[in-house]
């Protein structure tokens, strides 16, 4: 039997502490690269929480997509915008207190609703979910959302490349004019 504390299992408490600690570090650290690394810890903690919830497929998808792709993307964006090292301007907005109060109020509201409204339901037996079952569901019940997500991902990736691409036309014309003047 797994030891419990306040009705919560010890692995859950460790993973929750890891996730929250990573998120808090991302909020407080000043160096952007450190923020990205602590964000990766939070993503890993969430993936392990999914595994703890018997959602193996989602857990590994979380590891692939977030730790493998989004975290790398964030680090690339930080390095491409020369955000590494200490920032030249103050890290926090001038009205940071208002934002903090709003976030704390949101958490208080959510926690109040959670503790007030939930029935004391015990965990049922672990559902037998296979990757085959997920694939069959994606190809039958959820085939329309799957196609829409495929189109969305294609459009988003092409759009991201076009947005981040150097403006070839406007960059060329001043240099061409300069060359003509010389």
């Amino acid at each position: 039997m797994i030891p419990t504390l306040f009705g919560l299992t010890l692995p859950f408490l460790i993973l929750a502490a890891l996730t929250i600690a990573g998120a808090v570090a991302a909020a407080l650290l000043r160096n952007l690269v450190h923020c990205a690394l602590s964000l990766t810890i939070t993503f890993a903690g969430l993936a392990l929480l999914y595994l703890n919830l018997d959602a193996q497929f989602v857990g590994f998808v979380q590891m692939l997509v977030y730790i493998g792709a989004v975290a790398i993307l964030v680090v690339f964006a930080i390095l491409l915008t020369r955000g590494a090292g200490m920032p030249e301007y103050r890290s926090f907005s001038s009205n940071w207190l208002l934002g903090l109060v709003l976030a704390a109020a949101t958490f208080a509201l959510l926690a109040w609703a959670v503790t007030l409204s939930l029935p004391a339901s015990a965990a049922s037996a672990a559902p037998a979910v296979t990757v085959q079952g997920i694939g069959v569901a994606l190809m039958t019940t959820y085939v329309l959302p799957l196609e829409i997500v495929a189109i969305l991902l294609t459009v988003a990736l092409i759009g991201a490349v076009i947005v981040a691409m150097p403006e070839a036309k406007s960059a060329k014309s001043p240099s061409a004019g300069k060359a003509g003047a010389q």
Binding site: F12, V24, A27, G83, S93, G99, T106, F107, V114
Partner: peptide
């Protein structure tokens, strides 16, 4: 309830980051 509280905490920290950071 434990999982929901953790999710609420992560959400609030994300909200705090989005509202207070300048980068």
């Amino acid at each position: 309830a434990g999982f929901l509280i953790v999710a609420a905490l992560v959400f609030s920290i994300g909200l705090a980051i989005a509202l207070t950071r300048r980068n």
